[in-house]
Design a protein around this nucleic acid. Sequence first.
RNA 1: GUCCCGUUCGUCUAGUCUGGUCCAGGACACAGGAUUUUCAUUCCUGCAACAUGGGUUCGAAUCCCAUACGGGACGCCA
Length: 430
Amino acid sequence: MVRVRFAPSPTGFFHIGGARTALFNWLYARHVGGTFVLRIEDTDRERHVEEATEVILDGMRWLAMDWDEGPGVGGACGPYFQSQRDAIYGEYLDILRKKDKIYEKDGAIYFRVSREPQLIDDLIRGQVYRTEEKDFVIFRSNGTPVFHFVNVVDDVAMEISHVIRGEDHLSNSSKHVELFKAFGAPVPKFAHIPLILKTNGSGKMSKRDEGALVEDYRRKQFLPEALRNYLCLLGWSPKDDREIMPIEEVIRLFDLGDINKNNARFDDKKLAHMNAAYVKNMSMEQFLKKGKTLLPQVEVDEKYIDRVLAICQEKLRSFAELEHFVSYFFDENFAYDGEAKVHLKKHDPAARINEFLAAIENLGDFSEENLEKIVTELAEKYGIKTGDYIHTIRFALSGRTVGPSFYRMMPVMGRERVGKRLKRALEELE
RNA sequence: GUCCCGUUCGUCUAGUCUGGUCCAGGACACAGGAUUUUCAUUCCUGCAACAUGGGUUCGAAUCCCAUACGGGACGCCA
């Protein structure tokens, strides 16, 4: 029976590396039909555990990684907060004491190591041997247990079969193996996964780096599916050329032996690309639903909002851009981007707008097709590039140089509003 | 410093276990071009890697060794 766990420490942040560790644990559990345990390692009592735990739980839920045992869901091996497991740690300390494996020094309790090479049987790295040279503290002089101790005790007590964690723990594993043996417990299989390195510079990504936190991506309106998909590919691949793939397919193919050994650098451009692909692949229904959560509260007809959003999907790469794409649809006093205004001067904007105004005056249906036809005709008539009209008029209507399809936005705004805005622009562009 | 892990295009990777089909494939990025409705999209083309040196072998990206480089751990942090 496969039992894996993700055991974060509630620091107040959810590090992207932690999220990837959680993901690989979750993927493996789901792949083999095992149990995924979430355990909170809050041995540091100083911190604001509750809020800090919420950050992690929120991130886990956001990325849709559900746990089978742990906070909120319970389970047979609880409690799942280390701060509530003192009695258990006491029992396990007694086991070591009876076996004469520990001693006290300066008020702290030390564990006696064997000084024999310890086998770390790692599914990713093979058989690694490391010798622990020095006895180490398992209880501080203030009476609180140390990470190495509680981590192993909980893995024993929770019957964890596979320890999947970052490679930074590989060297610690010799301590842990010594402890497993001292308890007379079976030593779990290990899988030390490669670390995520900084996008720029050297070293592993730390919480102070830009984009190191799951919260960052959530705040920047990334789609969780896209982030999760990207994370799957950091150290693992389906072995064919697929990259964007449904999580069910990843679960089907995922295995610990296929994880890479070498560290991976985080590439935000590739993530952005992947996010854009996920945005494009959303159904219109999903897109509208998501879009509405991001719009400021405005008192407008729901149908109008839908029409505005509907013309955005084909060009939107990230929901972070949405507001910039649509805000002027709901605000008659939108501002003109000053820098762009200067650039447009060379297109003789007043002339373009007047020509366009004249052309739409007797236009029959205010439709995408008709509007496109007029611009083409105007360009031909005056010997000007269609782009000059498009640039100028988009700017006049929105104050922006980017946005949804030019021809599609006008019918949504409506003939009257387009006319009004063009006239206002005439004054603005003086 | 000691110990552990790693090393294929700028980046993520396929290929390494089971040596020949790899003068190394895909993706992102970048550069050019085409289409288009400006920005964007889409499409095409291009650029670009087996860390180095020794072995083993008829043959090595693939096996072995050394060196270099990168990463990690050496806390009464987790």
